[in-house]
């Protein structure tokens, strides 16, 4: 599987520049003390990962990989592992930068706040990729893009519509028992989500004909 992970990172090399530019932009914003864009970095990393799917599809990499030993399974697993590695890498860099940058403005750095933001970001990112990857494996990147776009749009409209009728506070209260353990809960549910998503993708890949 290591080989396939290397391949995904090699595919990202063109897009690493985008991440670096964003990082520089982020630092500049941080120094001037204006807005916090740290939240978008992990999301950008997912976008970078998704671009690797386009490269794969263009040369039918998944079909070729299926001719290599254990390639059919490993290219899916590798995709997940590479994504997680990238998210952690980017998040760690953002976190370190956040701490450094906030030390420019204040003496009392709120470490817990920074940590919580990061956990929240990682969870959000993992939620997105866990839904997207099986769709990409099922329909191919081109069609998956459209499906995901429609889904996001649909959820937005539906959500907005439902919010008129439902009291959000009530629902949040349902989760109040998690009050103290929500960090752990988020981490555990991310792992569970990833596992389920990966299993689904593997099933799809196993059945696929190229």
């Amino acid at each position: 599987m290591l080989g396939f992970i290397k391949k995904d990172f090699a595919l990202m090399k063109n897009n690493f520049m985008l991440l670096v530019i964003l990082l520089v932009f982020y630092i500049a914003m941080g120094i001037s003390g204006e807005i916090d864009i740290s939240i978008i970095l992990p999301f950008i990393s997912v976008l970078v990962m998704i671009s690797t799917f386009s490269y794969d599809d263009f040369n039918h990499w998944n079909a070729y990989a299926s001719c290599l030993p254990d390639g059919r399974k490993n290219c899916v697993k590798a995709k997940y592992v590479a994504t997680i590695l990238l998210i952690f890498l980017v998040t760690t860099i953002t976190m370190v930068l956040s701490i450094l940058l906030s030390s420019l403005h204040t003496k009392n750095i709120d470490y817990t706040y920074i940590l919580y933001t990061m956990v929240g970001e990682i969870f959000g990112t993992i939620l997105v990729l866990s839904i997207m990857y099986p769709i990409i494996y099922k329909f191919g990147i081109e069609r998956a893009r459209i499906i995901i776009f429609i889904m996001v749009f649909g959820i937005g409209i539906l959500g907005g519509f439902l919010l008129n009728f439902i009291d959000v506070a009530n629902i949040l209260n349902l989760f109040s028992f998690l009050k103290n353990d929500w960090v752990i809960t988020l981490i555990l549910s991310s792992l569970l989500l990833l596992y389920i998503s990966c299993q689904i993708s593997l099933k799809i890949q196993q059945k696929k004909e190229f």
Binding site: G3, F4, K6, K7, A10, L11, N14, T52, Y55, D56, F58, N59, H60, W61, A63, Y64, F210
Partner: peptide
């Protein structure tokens, strides 16, 4: 028409 993604190099292929 099935191979490594074409932005990779021969050196990448060797490493992989």
């Amino acid at each position: 028409d099935m191979f490594f993604p074409e932005i990779l190099t021969a050196r990448d292929i060797n490493r992989i």
